[in-house]
Amino acid sequence: MSDELTQKVFSVIAATQRIPVEKITIDSTFEELGIDSMDGVNILFALENEFNITIPDEAARTIRSVRQAVEGVDKLISGDAEKPAVAN
């Protein structure tokens, strides 16, 4: 995954959670960042809009860290060509 993608995910999380982007690292868990389940759903919504992807409910349930979020978005973007049903 690219640095650009990672930075974009960081900034989406920072903006949604209203925290400084400097607080976020690739190894941060949602818990460390004070992101509860409702915040998590909000972040996924913002990521869907930012990257024009659809994150399935089952995948959404497992994303509890920044790394999982970045990897999940990366997978959906790169899988775009093969699985158009996933993207909007």
Binding site: V41, L44, D57, R61
Partner: peptide, 19 residues
């Protein structure tokens, strides 16, 4: 959007419940 609706059926208290 709030991601609590089951894609199939409602299985309260069952381990495989999905919403």
């Amino acid at each position: 959007a709030i991601r609590v609706v089951s894609p199939d059926t409602c299985r309260p208290f069952s381990k495989d419940r999905r919403g």
